[in-house]
Nucleic acid binder design. Structure first.
Length: 424
RNA sequence: GGCGAGGUAGCGAAGCGGUCAAACGCAGCAGACUGUAAAUCUGUCGCCCUAGCGGCUUCGAAGGUUCGAGUCCUUCCCUCGCCA
């Protein structure tokens, strides 16, 4: 069995790890877990950063446990947060847990006989324990001094807002999770992003104190874009895995738009491509960056993994048409299939009869712009296109004669944001 | 409870009673340049229209002074700090 540790290492995914972890991974089949916060009902591309190591772990023959934080989600992890979180209702948490769980299932293999994956909800134990036992049996092993030293807590102590007792306790809950997983499943490794290091070591310390066993932790660096911005957000907001929230087309586009500097790291983090393939792509990026070969492969791989081969191929085709050919030469049905993922609005055909529909009103109407003033500004600055042709006159009236086959328009804002208007 | 500081647009932060829809920075949006990249540069960035030295609604809330208030007064709410 080749070593998971070295695999993660060349992929740039080892930021910190406990002593002896690499040896342990060499020696035995390890049971490891990663926690997922149910802060929303869908995972987003940032979550892939966490999902992938778990999937890799399983591919390397170890036992993977995904823990969905139905219990801890009721509290909120202060790590990496500068502000107190708004609490989610228990209904929200339950709904989110269900959504996240469903998505996690597609990345893990529950059928393999040797090391089937497992998904558990920490509400199973956190939801039933009583306060007194918790404080006596677990709380007793944490000094406040120790907790105050944790970066996640410390940073908040220095902030104006402070930290509530609720979030302060989070660390102990996560440590308790690790203990439970150790007891129930023999779990001896917890992984996570580097912001989790404090929470992970707390669990390690707890197990050492209570069970006299040395268990391990590993964290990877937090993913940032080359420009240092947070990963996974675009102008349109978070990029979700749920196709209802982020269409496969936009998902594909997100990855295709990766900048050159980040492409290599993304390939390493988000695909299963092997080292030589990735190095090959790196060299293509260096010699012919305008081909964006690395980005294309990245987008294809990740989209296929999340949405399947077919949808990925369609997104790829749609991209080619959209940014290459002239839409006006396509048939209405081709346009519709290419723009299947793009938001669409149905408008009554007679609105486009005679004098037609004012372009500013149309842009505002389909909400490509939040207000008419904004729509007007867009047009004046040259950011609006009808069927791929730029419109600059805010007084332009769009009529039915301009529609593709008299049936539809493709409105575009900027270079990428399309909107289909169907005449009904 | 006492004392002090403060609440201005998505965020940060200016703002001698008039020329304040409100400087500046960030974020956002668009344009140029490109490779659907990065960086850079330009414009824009409350809402409405008949697009103008136009109308309307904003500066924690409510009242008041004034010809005129983000700017002054009163009360209230909230935040932060120090002391009890």
């Amino acid at each position: 069995m080749s070593n998971l540790f070295r695999e993660l290492e060349w992929r740039g995914l080892v930021y910190d790890a406990t002593e002896g972890l690499s040896d342990a991974l060499d020696r035995e089949r390890v049971t490891a877990y990663i926690g997922f916060d149910p802060t929303a009902s869908s995972l987003h591309v940032g979550s892939l950063m966490t999902v992938m190591p778990l999937a890799r772990l399983q591919r390397f023959g170890h036992h993977a446990i995904a823990v969905v934080g139905g219990g801890t989600g009721m509290i909120g992890d202060p790590s990496g947060k500068s502000q107190e979180r708004v609490l989610l209702s228990s209904e929200q948490v339950a709904a989110n847990v269900a959504g996240v769980r469903r998505q996690l299932e597609q990345f893990l293999d529950f059928e393999v006989a040797s090391n089937p994956a497992r998904i558990v909800d920490n509400a199973d134990w956190l939801g039933t324990i009583d306060v007194l036992s918790f404080l006596r049996d677990t709380g007793k092993h944490f000094t406040v001094n120790y907790m105050l030293q944790k970066e996640s807590v410390n940073r908040r102590l220095e902030s104006e807002e402070g930290i509530s007792y609720t979030e302060f306790s989070y660390l102990v809950l996560q440590a308790y999770d690790f203990l439970q997983l150790f007891d129930r499943y023999g779990c001896t490794l917890q992984m996570g992003g580097s912001d989790q290091w404090g929470n992970i070591t707390a669990g390690i310390d707890l197990i050492r104190k209570l069970r006299a066993r040395k268990v391990h932790g590993l964290v990877w660096p937090l993913m940032k874009t080359a420009s240092g911005a947070k990963f996974g957000k675009t102008e349109a907001g978070t990029v979700w895995l749920d196709p209802q929230r982020t269409s496969p087309f936009r998902f594909y586009q997100f990855w295709l738009n990766t900048d050159d500097q980040a492409a290599s790291a993304y390939l390493k983090s988000f695909t299963f491509l092997d080292r030589s393939s990735i190095e090959e792509l790196d060299s293509v990026t260096r010699s012919a960056p305008e081909k964006r070969e690395a980005q294309r492969v990245l987008a294809r791989e990740v989209t296929s993994m999340v949405h399947g081969r077919d949808l990925a191929a369609r997104a790829e085709h749609a991209s080619a048409v959209l940014f290459g050919e002239d839409i006006a030469t396509l048939s209405a049905s081709d346009v519709l299939s290419v723009f299947e993922d793009v938001p669409a609005t149905d408008l009554a055909a007679d609105l486009f009869e005679s004098s037609g529909f004012g372009i500013v009103d149309l842009v505002a109407q389909v909400q490509l712009a939040p207000s008419k003033a904004e729509a007007r500004r867009l047009v004046q600055s040259g950011g609006v296109y009808v069927n791929n042709r730029r419109v600059t006159d805010p007084h332009l009236r769009v009529t039915r004669a301009d529609a593709i086959e008299g049936r539809l328009f493709v409105l575009r804002k900027g270079q990428k944001q399309n909107h289909v208007v169907r005449l009904a």
